[in-house]
Design a binder for these strands. Structure first.
Length: 557
RNA sequence: UGCCUCGUGGUGUAACGGUAGCACUAGAGACUCUGAAUCUCUCUGUCUAGGUUCGAAUCCUAGCGAGGCAGCCA
């Protein structure tokens, strides 16, 4: 199941395949239309993979279009982050199918205006002088505005004066004249334009009237020659309006068609922009790219790869059912990829010192270690061994439970790629904390040696105390303690207090030249990536995901 | 309340009138110099009730349940 070769199948692609078969369009054209008012998240990734996936599968084009019709909410700085995230996700996969990057709905403001004038001339729109409150109330009641039957001439004049800036915010709107008794409220004369004396991030002060979503989005799709306009379920009730606009303007074919799919929900996380912004603003996380967040920038920083995200998007599918995807599926997708490609290294997260009492003081060895057992071509490396080592604190227990087969007093364990050792003595500080283990090493048991075959139940990782390098490692856990933090009550009260732990780790020297674009498995621990806080002096790592850990489950019993 | 949409194992999905399959999760075992990976096995499902049909997850009707919309946000 590589995301480069498989052709996913879902109800939207089925429709498109049928349209292609029927020769309905010269070329398939989709679009990804973010509003530049925040950072992209994993839900957007699903949409990007869908829209760009369609473009590459049907040899079409996908436009990135900023839906920037509300000057009070949108900012230019978001455009840059959006484009960075989009390219990170699609480059090398569907970047050959990018139409405009980026296009802007605001570039079409003149044409939107011309279309609006045309709609008034056709008697299908009018300027309404009602207040916001009355407009809402009348729409709820299905009651017509007293300005509804105003003449075309008057509406034309008023609309021109709205544009000229003669009226304050909120005093007038342009409304479509459809049907105040329609069962679908979006057909009860929806507002097309509102007055907003506000500076726009691209058009500056040129405009003081701005188009509403339905008007702008439908016409943007038409202007760009979009064939399949794919959006999420909440726009389903807008589709009749989408079609009405195209009809009312009597626009010639080919026309775009709107299709809707269910947005992504993920357990133990929040996805909505509104909630993400709260976590950021209230400093519950460190920023938009905090690796605990499911923003694209957060996932990237955490070490998730574009290909893993694409595979995930493929795995979850496209339906109209509002589902709840298990975070475990995302984690599995990462492990599945990283297991194949990650370079293996030894690192000790919570070190405890081991002294090998029968190993010569000055002696050191260079032992062979495999870089990736799943990929023989990755070769081997040397790791230094000596009298003093660090092992993982969790790999020793003074009074272990039944199925524990790591190191214990008087017990034996294999050091990966090295020797079998036996724990003779436990050294403690005044507070009773274990600070050192004194062990003897079975010198005949060296890996690859003649009597290496002796079996012990446990194998643990280690690093040479003399040659280890220091690193800070950030251990992330799920941001929320419950599967559905926004199901009931305040989602912020479910923030996991242990979602981040920072440890000072000891790493094997081969990690000195670790590269940010590479993925590493710290053996027996998980998959890790270099964080951007890394400097020449201080290495910082992020744990992307742990290895599956059946012992942890056993230990909990 | 009105309108729209959707109901397949714990979760996500497939089957387009003809053997309910796949993946994740969970559990059991094999193997193991990663308690990983790999391999084997197991548990669990068509919302309910009618109808059409030789045959229904699929078509029809009703009910039940869930989600969405009712901004001069998108």
């Amino acid at each position: 199941m590589t995301d480069e070769t498989e052709r996913p199948s879902d109800f939207i692609r089925d429709i498109i395949a049928e349209d292609v078969r029927a020769g309905k369009y010269k070329q398939i054209r989709t679009r990804f239309p973010p509003e530049p008012n925040g950072y992209l998240h994993i839900g957007h990734a699903k949409s990007i993979c869908l829209n760009f996936g369609i473009a590459r599968e049907f040899d079409g084009i996908c436009n990135v279009r900023m839906d920037d019709t509300n000057p009070t909410k949108e900012e230019a700085e978001y455009v840059q982050s959006i484009m960075t995230d989009v390219h990170w996700l699609i480059d090398g996969w569907a970047d050959k199918h990018v139409g405009g990057a980026p296009l802007y709905a605001s570039d079409y403001f003149d044409r939107f205006y011309e279309y609006a004038v045309d709609l008034i001339r056709k008697g299908k729109a009018y300027v309404d002088d009602m207040s916001r409150e009355d407009t809402d109330e009348y729409r709820r009641l299905g009651k017509a505005s007293s300005f509804r039957e105003r003449s075309v001439i008057e509406s034309l004049d008023l609309f021109a004066r709205m544009k000229a800036g003669e009226f304050p915010d909120g005093t007038r709107t342009l409304r479509a004249k459809i049907d105040m008794n329609a069962a679908n409220v979006w057909l009860r004369d929806p507002v097309l334009y509102r007055i907003r004396h506000a500076s726009h991030h691209r058009t500056g002060d040129k405009w003081c009237i701005y188009p509403m979503y339905d008007w702008a989005h439908t016409l943007s799709d038409y202007i760009e020659g979009i064939t399949h306009s794919v959006c999420t379920l909440e726009f389903e009730v807008h589709r009749p309006l989408y079609d009405w606009i195209l009809d009312a303007l009597e626009l010639p074919d080919p026309r775009p068609h709107q299709y809707e799919f269910a947005r992504l929900n993920l357990t133990c996380s929040v996805i909505s922009k509104r909630k993400l912004i709260q976590l950021v603003n209230e400093k519950l996380v460190k920023g938009w790219d905090d690796p605990r967040l499911v923003t694209i920038s957060g996932l990237r920083r955490r070490g998730v790869t574009p290909s893993a995200l694409r595979t995930f998007a493929y795995n979850i599918g496209i339906t109209k059912y509002p589902s709840m995807t298990d975070m475990a599926l995302l984690e599995h997708t990462m492990r599945d990829e990283f297991n194949r490609v990650a370079t293996r290294r030894l690192a000790v997260l919570r070190p405890i010192k081991v002294v090998l009492t029968n190993y010569p003081e000055e002696k050191t060895e260079e032992l062979d270690a495999i870089n990736n057992p799943e990929e023989p071509k990755a070769g081997t490396r040397k790791i230094p061994f000596g009298r003093e080592l660090y092992i993982e604190r969790d790999d020793f227990m003074e009074t272990p439970p039944p199925k524990f087969f790591r190191l214990r007093p008087g017990g034996e364990v294999r050091l990966k790629y090295a020797y079998i050792i036996k724990c003779d003595e436990v050294v403690k500080d005044a507070g009773g904390n274990v600070i050192e283990l004194r062990c003897t090493v079975d010198l005949d048991s060296k890996s690859g040696g003649p009597t290496a075959g002796r079996k012990v139940k446990g194998t643990i990782h280690w690093v040479s105390a003399a040659r280890a390098i220091d690193a800070k490692v950030r251990l992330y856990d799920r941001l929320f303690t419950v599967p559905e933090p926004d199901a009931a009550g305040d989602f912020k009260s479910f923030v996991n207090p242990d979602s981040l732990e920072v440890v000072n780790a000891k790493c094997e020297p081969a990690l000195t030249d670790a590269r940010p674009e590479k993925r590493y498995q710290f053996e027996r621990l998980g998959y890790f990536a270099v964080d951007l806080d890394t400097t020449r002096e201080n290495q910082v790592w992020n744990r992307t995901v742990t290895l599956r850990d059946t012992w942890a489950k056993e230990a909990k019993r």
